[in-house]
């Protein structure tokens, strides 16, 4: 309803609106763009991020951009049907992780779509244990697994939530071959379900996020709901860019205690595994390259102006604009790295 006043004005010239050409003259972009996202939630991070970007793009290009939370499978379908540039998509790493994990409905995005530019990172992906758990750190987790203790990790299968778990198994395999079998998944759904499994004592470690779980880490240890971060999958430099206040009662500096190199989940014995949830555009493969370039150029100017970064950071997102070609190559390399992790643990 951002365009309330605009639409009241438009109502006066209703017929003019109907008759107006589909293409706005400026960048040869359609005047009404539908931005579908891979999430069904309008309260989640994908929607919020996309709304920030859509708003900025609409103002910059003087067009309408409407975000529709149709979910991944409908979003891909809608994108595939429309090569005119009237439908575009924003999603995150799930789009290729789903494919790596072999989830139904996820094709290889690099073959079927034009990928990039990237716009932001949600740095909050985290793993937590109960506050009074005998395992107080990732080191303890790996030690327990090596000692033959079954460590149950609550995740949602097939994507962003599972990749950190796969990395744990991979690290356990490198440090103590065979111990990875003791790190087992408890496949569940929403954050509520993951928390509940921990409260029930049915999971030893849960996947969570700084945003959703930070307050639980400040509860007294005697509280059944009290939790402790053991690992943030983000890169060190990602968290360093966050506002120094961090999230809630936890400053960025305190958060850094849970990222590499302070917490090490090794990727190959020498470098640490990291995962940043990055949001990026996806376009129909046959969409006019000029249109994509126009969106890319507009984003570049928006990020150069420097205002959007403040909005993003206020919502605990890390600005991360990379031009389309660069972003595409970068994400492809990222994908290949994760493919290695997943292959290495499924090999045995």
């Amino acid at each position: 309803m951002t365009g309330l006043f605009k639409s009241i004005a438009a109502a006066v010239g209703f017929t003019a609106m109907v008759a107006s050409p589909i293409l706005a003259s400026a960048a040869d972009l359609p005047s009404n763009i539908r931005l579908v996202i891979g999430s069904k939630s309008t309260g989640g991070d994908t929607y919020q991020n996309s709304a920030i970007i859509a708003d900025a793009l609409a103002k910059k290009l003087d067009i309408n951009v409407k975000v529709d939370a149709v979910g991944s499978s409908e979003a891909f379908k809608a994108l595939q049907r429309d090569s005119r540039g009237t439908t575009i998509m924003i999603f995150h790493d799930q789009s290729y992780l789903g494919n790596l994990y072999g989830v139904r409905g996820y094709d290889d995005i690099f073959e079927n779509y034009v990928v990039g530019p990237t716009v932001a990172i949600n740095p909050g992906n985290a793993y937590l244990v109960p506050k009074n758990s005998p395992m107080q750190s990732m080191e303890d987790v790996f030690a327990a697994a090596a000692a033959g203790v079954r460590v149950r990790v609550a995740i949602q299968a097939g994507g962003v939530s599972e990749i950190g778990f796969s990395a744990m198994k991979n690290a356990a395999r490198i440090m103590n071959p065979g111990s990875e079998a003791n790190i087992v998944p408890v496949n569940t759904g929403s954050q509520a379900d993951k928390n509940q499994l921990m409260f029930d004592g049915q999971a030893d470690v849960i996947n969570g996020s700084v945003q959703a779980n930070e307050q639980f880490t400040h509860l007294a240890a005697s509280d059944q709901k009290a939790m402790r971060f053991v690992w943030l999958t983000a890169r060190e430099e990602t968290i360093e860019q966050a506002n120094p206040e961090g999230m809630g009662n936890t400053t960025s500096e305190e958060l850094l205690a849970f990222t590499t190199p302070n917490v090490s989940v090794t990727f190959d014995g020498s470098t640490d595994f990291t995962f940043d949830k990055e949001f990026f555009f996806l376009f129909n493969k046959d969409m006019d390259a000029d249109q994509i370039a126009a969106i890319d150029a507009a984003l570049k100017e928006i990020f150069e102006a420097g205002e959007i970064q403040k909005t993003q950071k206020a919502s605990f997102f890390i600005p991360n604009y990379k031009p389309q070609a660069e972003a595409s190559a970068y994400l492809k390399a990222k994908r290949d790295q994760y493919r290695q992790v997943i292959d290495s643990i499924s090999a045995n």
């Binding site: 939630s41 309008t42 309260g43 989640g44 929607y47 919020q48 929403s190 954050q191 509520a192 928390n195 945003q211 959703a212 779980n213 930070e214 307050q215 639980f216 400040h218 509860l219 509280d223 709901k225 999230m247 809630g248 009662n249 206020a314 919502s315 605990f316």
Partner: peptide, 28 residues
């Protein structure tokens, strides 16, 4: 009190809090 929506409408209400940079959770 848990930062977890009880139904589909309150799931969207979470968005209203995060838009303003307010966390919902046990300390809210």
């Amino acid at each position: 009190s848990l930062g977890i929506p009880g139904d589909s409408t309150t799931a969207i209400l979470i968005g209203a809090f995060t838009l303003q940079g307010i966390q919902v959770g046990p300390l809210f």
